[in-house]
């Protein structure tokens, strides 16, 4: 418990800043919708006329931008990128910082096993991503409801946010794996964020060219896309399965590597 309390405190400031960031994103994003709302259908037409590659980059393909939820689907892409960056950095830092700040010589000399240290830290990180997700969910519900007309939005939003939560989990654990494996603790956060960005760029490339569509199983950013989720009304089972696999694999690897690791002090 003591490690959890310590970590909650240590990461509180960053959580606050990220929460304010995501809150601002939701408010500003939906504010844009308010500005465009009058133009109605023309927005869709404008988007449809754009080259497919540009649509892919902006993540606009397949939305009805005239509806509040459809417009939110556009915003969702940016939200999951934010959530993923937060998660991956949190995962990497929470593990790596003891070596980076040389406090491992304090903490790991205490009568606790490394497995327990990892568990406490991952649990704390889990609480943090849940809180991040809740802030996003609540602000989204409030903002989208405000502009929605007849449509029901909460179910769709809940689905989108559960997709985001799974992504957060995957990237949190990706960060922790990198920190557990990589010897140079200072670079753990940079490297894992780098991997995350490469995966994100890959997802955009897949949107642009159909030739590499098979690669969609590699990048989690393709697992939960707003258009598909909103149109189908559910998360894709294949991707859910893949997610569970990744989460279990990353968790196992984090424990295994960290327990065998020679701490670099």
């Amino acid at each position: 418990m003591n490690i959890m309390i310590r970590e909650m405190k240590a990461n509180l400031k960053s959580l606050l800043i990220w929460s304010i960031g995501v809150l601002a994103m939701v408010i500003a994003g939906m504010g844009k919708y308010a500005g465009m709302k009058g133009t109605g259908q023309t927005m869709n037409e404008l988007m449809a006329e754009m080259p497919k590659s540009l649509q892919a980059i902006m993540g606009t393909s397949g939305f009805d931008l005239a509806t509040a939820l459809g417009f939110y689907g556009l915003l969702y892409l940016y939200l999951i990128v934010m959530a993923s960056i937060h998660a991956v950095m949190l995962g990497a830092n929470i593990i790596a910082k003891e070596e980076r700040d040389k406090t491992a010589e304090f903490l790991l000399v205490k009568p606790v096993s490394r497995a327990k240290v990892i568990s406490m830290k991952l649990l704390t990180a889990l609480i943090h991503i849940v809180l991040f997700n809740l802030v996003t969910l609540l602000s989204s519900i409030i903002m989208v409801e405000r502009f929605a007309e007849a449509e029901t939005v909460t179910d769709g939003l809940l689905l989108l946010m559960s997709g985001m939560f799974i992504l957060q989990l995957i990237f949190l654990l990706l960060g922790s794996v990198v920190a557990a494996v990589y010897r140079k603790s200072k670079k753990a956060s940079v490297i894992s964020t780098g991997i995350m960005l490469v995966l994100f760029i890959l997802s955009i490339l897949i949107n642009m060219t159909e030739k590499i569509e098979m690669l969609k199983y590699i990048t989690p950013f393709k697992y939960f896309e707003a258009a598909t989720i909103l149109n189908n009304g559910k998360l894709e089972p294949v991707f859910l399965f893949l997610s569970v696999f990744l989460i279990l694999a990353f968790t196992t690897l984090t424990y295994r590597f960290y327990q065998k690791k020679d701490l670099n002090l």
């Binding site: 310590r6 240590a10 700040d101 040389k102 406090t103 010589e105 304090f106 000399v109 205490k110 009568p111 606790v112 096993s113 327990k116």
Partner: peptide, 20 residues
């Protein structure tokens, strides 16, 4: 038996670093 042993160990590292 690392965790068990460490109950009875006190350690002072050569360079002291603590949480900010």
């Amino acid at each position: 038996h690392a965790p068990e042993i460490k109950k009875e160990i006190g350690y002072l590292p050569s360079e002291v670093f603590y949480y900010d």
